[in-house]
């Protein structure tokens, strides 16, 4: 009986071991073909950059589909802007709101990894635009302010009743977004939105027109505003990241309708 039991136990043990091996092979194969299996994505060739004075379009290809991400800035090694792209093997991202004649450094990659880097210099002359520099010209709360020497941008706005579109909604917009710009009151918030409108014209910030709304965004500071066709403000806030601009519909414009 002992021999029979021993034989049975030995057989059962071998069977269990065989089942374990089969199960392990099965899961290993499942993992290898699983979409969640990690595989390093590589860059194909070098990124290509189309240049303008205030815009640059960066394109790159990878050896497999992945989410795309570009990080960029004026300082090598410390990018301060990020834009994400959808999943694919080819990515094309436009960087707007750049300064003419200025060198920018960028890295490209997936959501997790950096797979390439480079730099480019925008067209034009660097001396033209009086744009606040990183780390300088920052007001309360770290909000960039227009340089005082910039005579193109008034520092005092007209009364709120002139600059804000729907007075009834101003308090709600201020309650939600006033802190984005360290505004001290609804009138201060409305004034800042108007000054931003003037800065956008002077600095040629990217603008889009959609029916009855003009959208403007400073991609460096992430300040965003929407205006009616007559130039009065609809809203002024700071989106969570610069990719918000890419999701805005409409047609890019250089001159808003209220400028004659």
């Amino acid at each position: 009986m002992v021999c029979v039991d021993a034989l049975r136990l030995d057989t059962e043990s071998k069977l269990a071991h065989r089942q374990l091996v089969i199960r392990s092979i099965f899961f290993a194969l499942l993992f290898l073909v699983s979409p969640f299996a990690a595989r390093a994505i590589s860059l194909l060739g070098e990124p290509e950059v189309e240049l303008d004075a205030t815009e640059a379009t960066v394109r790159w290809k990878t050896d497999g589909p992945s989410g795309g991400k570009i990080r960029w800035g004026e300082n090598d090694g410390t990018p301060d802007q990020t834009i994400k792209d959808g999943v694919g093997a080819e990515h094309r991202i436009k960087l707007a709101g750049l300064k003419p004649g200025t060198r920018y450094f960028y890295t490209v990659g997936t959501a997790r990894d950096t797979i390439g880097k480079g730099s480019f210099t925008t067209k034009g002359t660097a001396s033209a635009q009086p744009v606040p520099q990183s780390g300088a010209g920052l007001g309360k709360g770290g909000v960039p302010v227009a340089p005082k020497q910039n005579m193109l941008v008034p520092q005092t706005a007209p009364p709120t009743r002139v600059t804000w579109g729907s007075i009834a909604s101003l308090q709600d917009h201020y309650d939600r977004h006033g802190a984005d710009f360290s505004a001290t009151s609804p009138d201060d918030y409305a004034a800042k939105a108007w000054i931003f409108r003037e800065q956008a014209l002077a600095q040629k910030l990217p603008m889009k027109l959609d029916g009855a709304t003009v959208r403007v965004m400073n991609l460096r500071t992430r300040a965003f505003a929407a205006y009616n066709l007559n130039g009065t403000t609809k809203t002024y806030f700071r989106p969570r990241d610069a990719s918000y601009w890419e999701r805005q519909p409409c047609t890019p414009i250089t001159t808003p309708p209220w400028v004659k």
Partner: peptide, 12 residues
Amino acid sequence: MEICPACGFQFG
């Protein structure tokens, strides 16, 4: 970009 005065949803 408007805020619905009733439910508070802000378009955009």
